[in-house]
């Protein structure tokens, strides 16, 4: 059974100089020995076994397709729709044109266009996320196929040498 033999093995780090860290670690070690003798602690295997099956299998999925990833990144930036802002280079009355257009824009944008823009942005986001998920599954399948190919090749070599 593994025990804490010395302080360098302990995971604990006590940085406060007002605390007697050596004494604290000794007390902890003594408690551990006592409780282990009484078989109080759950086994480390049990703790590990309780969590591992719940973790999603991600061993064969990695974001390594640079091209598609770059594409998704660009799509994400473009997915965000913005309202158009008006400006005018017409001398003298340019400000009036801009003011009228802005007033109209404010009315229509705030109450009608902006909600539609937000809805479209959300939609675009969902499409991109779906594509990203598909990319992940594709990479996972690719990885699995590579592994199966390797296994097949090993089996073929083994049967050939018999």
């Amino acid at each position: 059974m593994k025990t804490i033999e010395n302080t360098s093995q302990t995971p604990l780090e006590i940085r406060d100089p007002s605390l007697d860290s050596a004494d604290i670690l000794r007390r902890i070690e003594s408690q551990i020995s006592r409780r282990r003798a009484e078989i109080k602690y759950p086994a480390a295997d049990e703790l590990q076994a309780a969590w591992l099956p719940l973790v999603p299998d991600t061993t064969s999925v990695r974001i390594d397709d640079d091209y598609i990833f770059q594409l998704l990144k660009e799509l994400t930036v473009d997915s965000y729709l913005q309202e158009v802002r008006f400006s005018s280079s017409v001398p003298m009355v340019g400000w009036l044109i801009v003011a009228i257009r802005r007033a109209w824009n404010w009315m229509s944008t705030r109450w009608y266009v902006l909600p539609a823009l937000k809805q479209q942005t959300r939609y675009n986001e969902q499409v991109i996320i779906s594509m990203y998920r598909l990319l992940q599954s594709n990479l996972a399948l690719q990885q699995q196929m590579d592994e199966l190919r390797q296994q097949l090749s090993k089996l073929e070599n083994a049967s050939g040498s018999e």
């Binding site: 780090e13 604290i24 480390a44």
Partner: peptide
Amino acid sequence: LGDAGILFTHLGYEPVAEMAHL
């Protein structure tokens, strides 16, 4: 945290749980 609190570098369940108790 600076020098305050108690840190653990990895999850040794037993010593960390005993430290919690202290």
